[in-house]
Computed example of a mutant assay.
Amino acid sequence: MARTLLTAVNGTTLVGLGIAVLTGAKIRRGPGGILVAEGYRRKVPPATCFTIGSVIITRRTAEWLLDERRSGLLAHESRHAGQYAVLGPLFWPTYWVFCGYSWAATGTYGARNAFERHAGLERGGYRAAPLRPGLQRLRRSAATESPRPPSGSPSAD
């Protein structure tokens, strides 16, 4: 699969495997070229699972993640693997920029994060959140302003 090859070539899967091995997680094969590292025990990040390259690292067992009742979560994490395939190591700083934007806009790291939205917010355990009140007011005032024709246009004379 192209995603698996790209994450192998760009080194992100190697980083994911390294973290899995260094933290004592057991690596198992998953569907579609995904690897599942089960039994992650570190405190950071606090998520039940997270993805690095084509490696989904989970605190639970691989069976738990691969159970059909969690197919949405598996699909969410697999979309992140696709994002790693496209961006390679640039995924990390870009993801954190979007986390910062989301935090500034909503007070949550995921609600306005383009990566989480693309992967499916709810499938990943995230909830939609409204804009902070000040941003809501700014947005409403911008929407109510009537557009002005650019200077130099016939209706501006």
Rank of each mutant, 00 (worst) to 15 (best):
R139L: 15
L73W: 08
N10V: 09
E63F: 00
A20K: 03
N10P: 08
R79D: 04
S71K: 02
A142S: 06
S153M: 08
R3W: 12
T61D: 03
T58Q: 03
H76Q: 06
R117L: 02
A104V: 09
G82T: 12
P154V: 10
V15N: 03
G152N: 04
F91N: 05
R69Y: 12
L74Y: 12
C49T: 02
L90S: 10
A111D: 02
F115N: 01
S155R: 03
A81H: 01
R139E: 15
E116H: 11
E145I: 10
G32F: 09
S155G: 05
E145P: 03
S153C: 09
G124Y: 00
V44T: 14
W92K: 15
R28A: 14
L131G: 05
G134S: 13
S141M: 15
S146T: 04
Q136F: 04
E38A: 09
I52R: 03
A105W: 07
G107V: 04
S102D: 00
L131D: 06
G33R: 04
A2R: 10
T13E: 02
Q83R: 05
E77M: 05
G18T: 11
A75Y: 02
L5S: 07
V15F: 07
A128T: 09
D67M: 00
W64I: 01
R127H: 09
G107S: 07
A47T: 08
A81K: 03
P89L: 15
S141V: 14
G107C: 05
T12M: 04
F115M: 00
A128P: 02
A85D: 01
A8D: 14
C99M: 11
L17C: 06
T108V: 00
L35N: 05
A8E: 08
R140F: 14
G110K: 07
A142I: 12
G88H: 10
P149C: 07
F50P: 02
A143C: 14
W96C: 05
P150V: 01
I19F: 14
F50T: 06
G107I: 02
H80T: 12
W92C: 12
C49F: 03
V21F: 14
R137F: 11
A142D: 07
S71F: 13
I57M: 09
L87R: 13
R28E: 14
T7P: 00
A128L: 10
K26L: 07
R3Q: 09
Q83A: 06
G120R: 06
G30M: 00
P149H: 10
R70L: 08
A119H: 01
A105H: 06
A114G: 08
T48I: 14
R42H: 05
T12W: 03
L35A: 09
H80K: 07
I19H: 12
A119S: 00
T12H: 07
T51R: 03
